[in-house]
Amino acid sequence: MSLFWRIFLLNAAVLVAAGALLLLGPITVSAPVVLTEAVILACGITLMLGANALLLRLGLAPLQRVTRAMATIDLLHPRPRPEVGGHGEIADLIETFNSMLDRLEAERATSSARALSAQEGERRRVAQELHDEVGQTLTAVLLELKRVTGHAPEPLRGELAHVQEITRGSLDEIRRIARRLRPGVLEELGLVSALTALTTETPTPGGLTIRRRWEKDLPELGEEAELVVYRIAQECLTNTVRHARASLLELSLRRSPDGVELRIRDDGRGIGDAPEGAGLRGMRERALLIGARLTLSSGTAGGTDVRLDVPVRNGLD
């Protein structure tokens, strides 16, 4: 039955009941209306309106639930779905809304996969060019400086040696940037070795201590999931070094009931009321891409607590 006919029949039932009471009951209306009759009519109208409001409230309750779901749903993690209830158009509306969320989730996953794949491809290209073009050029400059230094007069050798050190430092920095853009150790040695290299090679301010804890015999993740875990850890580590003013950073990777849990905690300033930036949105989209759940909260003793739960699709064995 459509929503229109449900409301119409509810109102008709209330009016018919009121008319039957007037026809069959002892109540009459005289002219002019006396005070007692006016009070009885006012009470009757009030009861009719109250019954009508109650019946409409019960009939439209599922519509109010789906309205609240529409207003509060998290589009980056749109589960659980609103429960289908009611009749007619209301049930159809909830089913249509759930179908729209399913399509939105699928389209977002597809578009995120394409965007992240293009981003990783561009990072690999830039890293390759830095290594092959800029790195080789700086290597040639170092060799030439070494040759010139051997034939230069004594007063210039010190200055040329200083230029060599600057060039060598620039070459090391370019290689470090290339490794961050394209974590070759992730492909060659696995996730734990890549995270260890990440925490070791990332420049940290004085006073920041990094503690690592890796569990043994972790369930195997796919290449895509390992890359997502690495990038999220990289983003968290970068944010902590640049903005948190923390003295301690704890990074752990352990087995969870459904798969693997990555946890990153620091004792810095915390997130406070700062709006969600592009970095955090990118982390959420990466997590959504592999069906993982990202939780960001304040630590018990201040700072920031980031948790990534990565499911293993084929079980833990």
Rank of each mutant, 00 (worst) to 15 (best):
R179E: 12
A152R: 03
P183S: 00
A178H: 03
T137C: 12
R176F: 08
D92W: 05
H151R: 14
H162S: 13
A91I: 04
R124T: 10
D172F: 06
E159M: 07
Q119F: 14
I174H: 04
H131G: 11
G121I: 05
I166P: 02
E105Y: 03
L130Q: 07
Q164I: 06
R125W: 15
T137M: 11
T199S: 08
E95N: 10
H151C: 14
E107C: 05
M100G: 09
T200S: 11
E154P: 09
V185R: 03
I177V: 15
R114G: 08
V141I: 09
R180P: 00
D92P: 01
G88F: 02
V134F: 08
D172C: 06
S193V: 07
R176W: 11
T96K: 11
D172S: 11
A178L: 00
A140T: 15
T167D: 05
R108N: 10
T110W: 15
R157M: 03
Q136E: 11
E95Q: 12
A194S: 06
G184R: 04
Q128G: 14
L138Q: 05
R182Q: 14
E159V: 09
V126Q: 09
V141R: 02
I174L: 10
I177C: 13
S117H: 10
E122P: 07
T139C: 13
A113H: 08
A118W: 08
D172W: 06
L93P: 01
E188Q: 15
R125M: 15
S170T: 15
A106K: 08
S193I: 05
E165N: 14
E144T: 13
I94S: 01
R114P: 04
L138R: 00
I174S: 04
G135D: 05
R103D: 11
L101S: 02
R123N: 15
V148N: 00
A113Q: 08
V185S: 04
H162Q: 13
L143H: 12
E129P: 06
E159A: 10
V192T: 14
L195H: 01
L195G: 02
R180Q: 13
R179F: 05
A109C: 08
L156W: 11
V134Q: 05
N98K: 07
L138H: 03
I94N: 02
A161G: 12
A197N: 04
E188S: 14
L186H: 00
R147N: 15
L171Y: 04
L186I: 03
L130P: 04
G158W: 02
E187K: 10
I94T: 08
R182M: 07
N98Y: 08
E107N: 12
T149R: 06
H162N: 14
L93G: 00
E105P: 01
L143Q: 10
H151Y: 15
G190K: 00
R125F: 15
D102T: 10
A113P: 01
I94P: 00
V185Q: 02
V134D: 03
I166E: 10
H151T: 14
E105T: 13
Q164K: 09
D172M: 12
V185G: 00
L171D: 04
L130A: 07
D102M: 04
G190D: 02
V141M: 03
L189N: 14
